[in-house]
């Protein structure tokens, strides 16, 4: 009999709630992540994303609802889940008194296998002085070591809480490729990040966590549709805007973010070609989605996490 891969979703949460005393951090999370998916978790600070990730590995016990990871209950079978999961905490979590190499060995010792190829690649990429004590590392180097420890173990699920924190743009781009390769290798990833471009570039699906609840897909779609009425325009000189157009924002380079009732394509065609330096239509950027979903919602300002 051959080895069978379960068809059950890797993560399956139904109406999961989590309270810390009187504070309600998660307010009924419904989430399903299939094997091989790359889920991006978009959330402002205090929305409950770290709590959600900790709950998945049994670090926190849910107050109510149903939760399964690899068809196992994290409250009952957290060891079995953790042996198949690599979790990178939101706070850099490395032992200062160890050398980089001994920390790496320590972190890998908890898992049955290590991914030597990823390890070699990240060691080369990060160029960390692994024989030096971690206390001599900068904040960015400590974060790189934590990433190296989290990604170099052979597991099925990676829960990464802001891995790109304290990394410069070059490193973020390199890390992006490593995560993409893990995904291509069939791993399941859940990534939370404040760098929206990372999430947009990597995730096969995005979920927006707002004040302890996931924003319903219907609301996200509605917002996307609404955002498609917006367009970015950079003009060479002042020209009258189409009737009914509203300037939402004027960016530093002179780009205008406009909202129009009808399609602006017809109006654009009436303009002389040299009058338009740049125009972007029908593309709902993640940052715009974030702005509408989080910054223009009163609930977003009442962060839930303690």
């Amino acid at each position: 009999m051959g080895f069978q891969v379960s068809d059950a979703p890797v993560l399956d949460l139904i109406a999961v709630q989590k309270h810390f005393g009187a504070v309600q951090v998660l307010r009924g999370i419904d989430l399903r992540v299939e094997r091989g998916e790359f889920l991006g978790l978009v959330a402002p600070n205090g929305a409950g994303k770290s709590t959600l990730l900790r709950l998945l590995i049994g670090m926190h016990r849910r107050t109510s609802g149903q939760c399964s990871v690899f068809a196992l209950d994290p409250d009952q079978s957290s060891l079995a889940i953790r042996s198949r999961t690599s979790y990178l905490p939101g706070e850099t979590s490395v032992y200062q008194q160890m050398t980089g190499a001994s920390f790496l060995q320590f972190a890998q010792s908890f898992h049955r296998g290590r991914d030597a190829a990823i390890e070699r690649r990240l060691v080369e990429l990060f160029a960390l002085p692994l024989q030096a004590r971690v206390r001599s590392y900068s904040a960015g180097m400590k974060q790189k070591l934590a990433i190296l420890a989290a990604l170099s173990v052979e597991v099925e699920l990676y829960l990464l809480d802001e891995p790109d924190r304290a990394l410069d743009a070059t490193m973020r781009m390199e890390l992006r490729q490593v995560l993409r390769d893990l995904h291509d290798a069939g791993k399941t990833l859940v990534l939370s990040s404040h760098h929206l471009e990372e999430l947009q570039a990597l995730a096969t699906r995005l979920q927006f966590l707002r004040s302890g609840t996931l924003v319903p897909d219907a609301e996200v779609e509605r917002t996307r549709t609404q955002l498609q009425r917006r367009f970015r325009l950079r003009l060479a000189r002042d020209l009258p805007l189409p009737a009914g157009a509203t300037i939402l924002r004027r960016e530093g380079d002179g780009t205008l973010l406009l909202e129009v009732g009808d399609s602006p394509a017809a109006w654009l065609h009436t303009l002389p070609p040299d009058a338009v330096r740049a125009a972007e239509l029908g593309n709902a950027r993640l940052e715009d989605l974030y702005e509408v979903l989080f910054l223009q919602q009163p609930a977003a300002r009442t962060g839930a996490a303690p």
């Binding site: 590995i57 670090m59 953790r82 042996s83 979790y87 905490p89 032992y95 908890f110």
Partner: peptide, 14 residues
Amino acid sequence: ETQTLEFLLTRPVS
């Protein structure tokens, strides 16, 4: 204090 307890308690060890 050094935020390593979260690392330790999230390893596959009881």
